[in-house]
Amino acid sequence: MTRRISTLFLTVFATGLLGSAAAIAQDAKGKPAAAAAPAAAPAAAAPATAPATDVNRFNRLLKPANQRNLPPTQDGIHDPASEGTTALMPPLSAFETLPRSNAGNRVNWVKALEDRAINPRWDRLDPNAVPVVMDLNIVREVKGSMPDVVYPHKQHTEWLDCSNCHPAIFIPQKGANQISMAAILLGQKCGVCHGKVAFPVSECRLCHSKKKDGPIARTGQ
């Protein structure tokens, strides 16, 4: 009798363990939390919540570091069932040799170009064509506490043609354009590229880079 009970118990226990192992394997983050719970519980819970997540996990909304630069098969928009997807290059393998940054692709594209870590073509066919780089900074004074914005033509004309911005996005005349953060967040003005392909809006200080000269206090503001 006792033996039969223990065999039964063992079977249940083993099934539970197997189940939890599967649950852990399914959990991309491989969090140890699941293992600590009674063996049978995660097995039962696993089908309901596939990526078993802890409700009180430290970061509720922030994307964890191990979900950045995922290979196409795991990135959520490519179809893992397609053969083409498995043939594509995983981003991290390309980024290994490039200088990193804190946002976007997590590549510092300006530095990558400067350091010649990459040498993207300026012409579709001619690998030796070089851009006409224009070094002209435009300072835009910002009301309030944020540092002033310096718009550098140099880094832009390394990548872009004048016609990409002038005149459709910006009239080429200092101060002739009304730019606001709200417009940028909505994908207009600087936000046509920043927040889509060029470094995202979260990197405030790359744009707001000039300390205000005078005292900040402007009465009436």
């Binding site: 590549v107 073509r121 579709r124 990548w159």
Partner: peptide, 14 residues
């Protein structure tokens, strides 16, 4: 990301 390693924006967008 893959294409900008090989071409500048100008090639495609201009």
């Amino acid at each position: 990301w893959f294409h900008r390693i090989r071409f500048r924006c100008k090639v495609c967008h201009a």
